[in-house]
């Protein structure tokens, strides 16, 4: 199957189109952990009410608040990407608090931060999104 996407530097969201199916979360989890779950996904679908469902994921900000907050130096800007070095992460959660979009989560299992890495420019969540809400 030809890839639907060119190399991505950012994931875009059209929340009007989101049907709330969470296929993005499952695809993200299996890509990063080899297992299926919702707890290990780096993208989240929040159901606000019947009509509003909002996927949330890292924006790879130009001036990332998470990077400034990280005292371990685990978060860096590499080109257009905001990259988390999981080995350096101490699990202090400063980035989780700092992100204005709530797009970083803390994993109880890993005791580390969970954040989108854009799957080397070919995000699995985009491939999995049937209604085209993630692009």
């Amino acid at each position: 199957m030809p890839s639907k996407t060119k190399r991505k530097t950012r994931i875009m969201i059209d929340k009007e189109k989101c049907t709330g199916c969470k296929a993005c979360m499952l695809a993200c989890a299996v890509k990063h952990t080899g297992r299926y779950s919702t707890s290990m996904a780096r993208i989240w679908v929040n159901e606000i009410d019947e009509m509003v469902v909002v996927p949330n994921v890292c924006r790879h900000c130009v001036a990332p608040a998470c990077m400034r907050a990280c005292s371990a130096g685990a978060i860096k800007k590499e080109g257009e990407l905001v990259v988390l070095d999981i080995k350096k992460c101490t699990g202090c959660r400063a980035c989780v608090d700092a992100c204005p979009f709530g797009a970083i989560k803390y994993s109880e299992k890993l005791k580390k931060a969970l954040k989108c890495d854009l799957c080397d420019g070919e995000p699995e969540c985009i491939k999995a999104c049937i209604p085209g809400a993630i692009y």
């Binding site: 049907t19 709330g20 199916c21 969470k22 296929a23 499952l26 019947e50 009509m51 049937i130 209604p131």
Partner: peptide
């Protein structure tokens, strides 16, 4: 009013219905 889906579905047949007017206005399901 809106398309919905079950978890991980690729067909996505669910939808939200809302009544705009009349005696059942405001019903959402």
């Amino acid at each position: 009013k809106k398309r919905k889906a079950c978890m991980g579905c690729a067909i996505q047949c669910k939808y939200v219905a809302m009544i705009d007017s009349g005696e059942f206005a405001g019903t959402i399901t």
